[in-house]
């Protein structure tokens, strides 16, 4: 498992190196591979969070779908919040609701919580066991089951495929 951690962190760091240098010059590429490999071996033997990533084509396909779904949600939620902010009567209805997640893997939970936070209007305030406490700018359903259905399911379905 340790080699997989090192390999994935090496890949991430190497992509960062290529983005910053933007060249395929032999010397630069060799230095980059050496540096990132050294960093990964030295520091990321215990980055257990990477060990849950699956390197199968199906996982990659679902990652892609997830990005598209997430971007769609982001734009939709942004338009909604813009409408709320600009309308003169300020139609907000805030509150903190509780939702449950079925996901077990740490990485999937991290991505789920960050997606909820990045979508304007909802905000992960606290995580406790399986429960997420979400500050919602426009509470439609205060009960747990309904709120879960509204906020979490659309991301969770895809993340379950990605991380199992």
């Amino acid at each position: 498992m340790k080699t997989k951690n090192i390999f994935i962190s090496f890949l991430v760091l190497l992509i960062g190196w290529f983005l910053l240098t933007w060249t395929l010059d032999m010397k630069s590429v060799l230095i980059g591979i050496g540096l990132t490999g050294m960093l990964a071996i030295l520091f990321c033997g215990s980055c257990t969070i990477f060990s849950e990533i699956k390197l199968t084509p199906k996982a990659f396909a679902y990652t892609f779908i997830y990005l598209i779904v997430f971007m769609g949600e982001l734009v939709k939620a942004n338009i909604d919040v813009t409408r709320r902010v600009l309308s003169p009567s300020l139609p907000i209805n805030p509150g903190i609701v509780k939702v449950e997640t079925r996901l077990k893997s740490k990485m999937a939970r991290l991505i789920l919580a960050n997606s909820i936070t990045l979508t304007p209007g909802t905000f992960t305030l606290e995580v406790h066991d399986d429960a997420f406490y979400i500050h919602w700018i426009d509470v439609k359903h205060a009960e747990e089951a309904q709120a879960t259905e509204d906020l979490v399911r659309k991301f969770e379905k895809i993340l379950e495929e990605m991380y199992g």
Binding site: V81, V85, L90, P94, T117, P120, F123, H135, I137
Partner: peptide, 17 residues
């Protein structure tokens, strides 16, 4: 916005997009 929580909601996250 009327309180801190809603300000964080609109202030820092609408600016992300």
């Amino acid at each position: 916005m009327p309180d801190v929580y809603n300000r964080v909601q609109t202030g820092t996250k609408a600016s992300t997009l």
